[in-house]
């Protein structure tokens, strides 16, 4: 499609209104100027992202087909053996299952809680300011440090949460919450929700503030109940904000590494690993296989996001 006359990096103009036809009739110099118009503006971003983000991705894909010694020395091609070895890992299905539970629970709970919090923060009341300030805290603190603090609070003998629960007579004696996969995983999901809440709530709050007051006025005139108004007025108008919140959370939660790494390290064994931490672990023993899992991971998240965007568009058209 690209014209041979223009430099390879240039983007040919497609006319001011997005159609290709008119550009052809204008003199070459004018065409070139429009073609190069956006270049100085956007090329720094494109060069940086292509070079530092996307090029390593290409390298990652390439090394997933290589036989790589633990020392890092490449021993030639490995065909698809890295992938075969990965899918034959006895723990792989379990780790995939964990990942699914992790993503669905964290994103789902985060969105529901954030919708409620955003609704609350959109009201006028004295405590609002304090609460909004507090909500910023988990955002400002590093995720790794938050996870560390939770691990410390869950410590089986010195932990604050254990002491609190014993004092409230919820449990009889301190528990090793993070030592058992059945209790460690829910706690980690909780921490992941905790760190995802601020961004999600603020995004939804920003969405709520774009809804004009007249819409609610009209709903009230029609005699709609509060709940009914929320479902049929607020939620549909909030769709663009929810879209942004879900996509960003899907990506962040799926790729989330520090929470699991800091709290259980994926242990005991691979019991609480997701594909992201699993990938990091096998990197120590087999770089090629780890690259293969990275490619699989990247594929999964792209498909997840595209699926969500597709469903969203489909819903919109159905309206």
């Amino acid at each position: 499609m690209r014209e041979t006359a223009s430099p390879p990096t240039s983007r040919k103009p497609s006319g001011d209104d997005g159609q290709a036809a008119p550009a052809a009739r204008r003199p070459f110099s004018a065409r070139l100027r429009t073609a190069l118009g956006p270049l100085p503006w956007i090329s720094p971003a494109i060069i940086l992202i292509a070079f530092v983000v996307l090029w390593p991705v290409v390298e990652m894909v390439r090394s997933s087909f290589l036989r790589i010694r633990r020392s890092g020395i490449v021993k030639g091609s490995n065909g698809t053996d890295n992938y075969k070895k990965l899918f034959d890992e006895p723990d792989f299905t379990h780790v995939l299952w964990n990942t699914m539970v992790w993503v669905v629970c964290v994103v789902g709970i985060t969105i529901v809680l954030s919708l409620a919090l955003a609704q609350l923060f959109n009201q006028q009341f004295p405590g609002r300011r304090v609460a909004r300030w507090a909500l910023i805290i988990p955002w400002a603190a590093s995720v790794f440090m938050t996870a560390i603090v939770f691990r410390w609070m869950l410590h089986h003998s010195y932990g604050a949460i254990n002491t609190l629960l014993v004092d409230l007579h919820v449990i009889d004696e301190g528990k090793d919450w993070l030592g058992e996969p059945s209790t460690a995983f829910p706690w980690m999901i909780g921490v992941a929700v905790f760190v995802s809440l601020p961004f999600t709530t603020y995004t939804l709050l920003a969405g709520l503030q774009t809804i004009p007051g007249e819409v609610y006025e009209a709903a009230r005139m029609d005699g709609a109940s509060t709940w009914r108004t929320y479902l049929s007025v607020t939620l549909p108008l909030l769709r663009p904000a929810i879209l942004v919140a879900v996509v960003i959370n899907l990506i962040n939660v799926f790729n989330s590494f520090p929470i699991i790494w800091a709290m259980t390290g994926g242990g005991p064994g691979y019991e609480t690993d997701t594909t992201t931490t699993f990938m990091y672990k096998i990197k120590a023993s087999d770089i090629g296989e780890s690259a293969a899992l990275s490619v699989v991971n990247f594929g999964i998240i792209i498909v997840l996001v595209l699926l969500y965007l597709g469903v969203n568009r489909w819903n919109k058209e159905a309206d």
């Binding site: 996307l54 790729n255 990938m279 990275s294 996001v305």
Partner: peptide
């Protein structure tokens, strides 16, 4: 789309290629 895909890149997976880069 390229920017959106770049946003999805798993950072921990890229440490080795980035090191060489």
């Amino acid at each position: 789309v390229m920017f959106l895909v770049a946003q999805m890149v798993p950072v921990e997976a890229l440490t080795i290629p980035l090191f060489f880069l």
